[in-house]
Design a protein around this nucleic acid. Structure first.
Lengths: 242, 242
DNA sequence: GTGACATAAACGTCGTACTTTTTGCCCGTG
DNA sequence: CACGGGCAAAAAGTACGACGTTTATGTCAC
């Protein structure tokens, strides 16, 4: 159909050509492979990936909505400076976590967590439904149960579930939507460091106590305890990348 | 070219047809005009807005990347439930702030601010450059200067600038990117309520003190003072929409 | 040296043809 | 008679190539 002597793979499983292209371009851009200021021409991309320009344009539209690139006539598709990227876009977060500056990204996100989660826990103590309190206690107990004996995968599942419930129970939709981010951070952390050692017993205890405080409606205590968890997470990261 | 007897206006100034279409669909969806679960067919939209299906597809791709809709074959473009929307996307935030549930959105965002900004101020006290300290002091003084005598517009400019500098000075990119959100919240607040009364003198003083604390590197004080500002903002909102 | 105009490079838009997926019908079987 | 598997058709998204539009840039005349 086209020459395409150097067509790139686009190995990802297909839900449409544009999605495949996006999964090639997004990581490449966020990884700094195309540094800010560099220009991508639509037909060049079309040739390189052996797709039509329409497909390229759709992928570019999405990248544009993430503020990763800017498309201007007669100029091409320009990569925007890092500071302008929509770093809260889950897709962008995933790409960056998979890429080179993973440590930096992990630090930023953990700092964000340390700011948000204590406040969320305080709100949860005031607004959590009985069902949410029960879920919280259940997850905390599961964390205790899986905290010893090389069950890190199971532990991770419940850790994520715990924080997700807290964020949802806060009743604030902005907080609730950070559940996915926290999940990424936690699983990334587990996957990329210790993996051998059991989790810190003190942290496990803190989770149980947070569940208690929320159940009892003790907002200040829930906030304070969650802040302690956050401090632990920050310290853990400082050890890794000081 | 096409029949288009009921072509809708798309009154927005043009940077491309797809962008215009987006500016029609985005606000409509976020405003709940197309409730979650409802389906939009591509050619129906193409007819209604008198554009080609390619243009519709590009707009849909963007909406899809915001998790506002989901496109499936044989089904159509389905509006996703509210909880799945990318509520951190500045575009989505703007649409929702312009729409019906503006008060609710304003509350969510203010709670987010109250969680993030104190921590950001604490970090700023540790990491702010001399230039940033100077900028902070300058903006705080401008706030003082414009805090009396019906200069709310000028005051707003410096209020926004102040918070933006704090967020940037924190050195955390996730915080820095909340500058736009804070700007939207502050201008929205000013535009939609008092507009007559001068700002609370206590709040103005607090800003000056935050600038001081950051300049002196007193992180706990900067954090505590910013938390006081946040509490004030929350109370202000509680009065409006209890 | 400065202004306006011509040129072409790049994105933008359109109409057409293709693919996938659902749905419902039909027929065979238990 | 009821149920289930498979086939066919239509609905909707998907991809393509050609044409249109904007605009940066360079050149020519004044």
């Amino acid at each position: 159909m086209r020459a395409a002597p150097y067509a790139e793979p686009m190995t990802n499983q297909a839900r449409g050509l544009h999605a495949q292209l996006l999964e090639s371009l997004g990581p490449a851009i966020t990884a700094g492979e195309y540094p800010p200021g560099s220009v991508l021409r639509t037909d060049e991309l079309a040739q390189r990936f052996d797709v039509s320009r329409t497909v390229v344009r759709e992928a570019v539209r999405v990248l544009e909505s993430m503020h990763l690139v800017e498309s201007r006539r007669r100029v091409g598709v320009t990569v925007r400076p890092t500071e302008e990227w929509n770093v809260y876009d889950p897709q962008v977060i995933r790409w960056r976590l998979a890429g080179a500056d993973r440590p930096r990204q992990l630090r930023s996100l953990t700092v964000l967590r340390s700011a948000v989660e204590p406040v969320a826990a305080g709100l949860a103590a005031r607004f959590a439904t009985p069902e949410q309190c029960a879920a919280l206690t259940k997850e905390a107990l599961w964390m205790v149960a899986t905290s010893r004996g090389r069950q890190l995968d199971a532990y991770l599942v419940h850790d994520i579930a715990f924080h997700r419930v807290v964020l949802r129970a806060s009743g604030n939709e902005m907080f609730a939507r950070l559940g996915d981010v926290v999940a990424e951070v936690l699983s990334g952390r587990t996957r990329h460091q210790v993996m051998f050692e059991d989790p810190d017993p003190a942290a496990v205890t803190l989770h149980v106590q947070v569940a208690e405080a929320v159940r009892e409606g003790d907002a200040p205590r829930a906030e304070r305890l969650t802040r302690e968890i956050a401090v632990g997470a920050l310290q853990e990261l400082d050890v890794l990348a000081p």
